[in-house]
Amino acid sequence: MEKNIRIAQMQVSKEKNDTLVASGVGSGIGLAVYDPVSKVGGILHFILPDSTLEKGAAEKQPLMFADTGIPELLEAFSALGGQKDRIKVLAIGGSEIMNQSEPHSIGKKNRTALAKCLVAVDIDLDIEDMGGNVNRSLKLEIDTGDVFVKTSRNPQEVKI
């Protein structure tokens, strides 16, 4: 079953027929995790780096932010039997509008926040496709762990 992940949402699954899809990842980041042994996978689509920005929004939707969303994704991944020592991690997104330089570069801030959050839990990022002015989509097949990415510039999906 195809499960779509909107902005500020996540899905984790170990159902072999499931395919998780995050479409339309812009400055936010689509973060996929997968354990090839237990075949547990998940995707989070966060859009902003830091939950201290807006307390009300963070309480209502913690998955909106890197610092509150990533721990929730990892917790849900573990709860289904995913193990940290086998985890494969892939990230897409973090794009910018042309000349969107500091301090307005939200894509870059998201990329930095992602790196910081992964270091904090001692997890490496295995594959990434981030930055530029493109919009991306990410698909994760739970049974195989295969990941496909397509971009606004190349609508043919590519297995990575």
Partner: peptide, 19 residues
């Protein structure tokens, strides 16, 4: 809308940002 990726098309984020 571009940054949030809300139904963005082929033009994606390819526009100028004006601080």
């Amino acid at each position: 809308c571009m940054m949030l990726g809300l139904a963005v098309g082929a033009d994606a984020l390819s526009y100028q940002f004006h601080t």
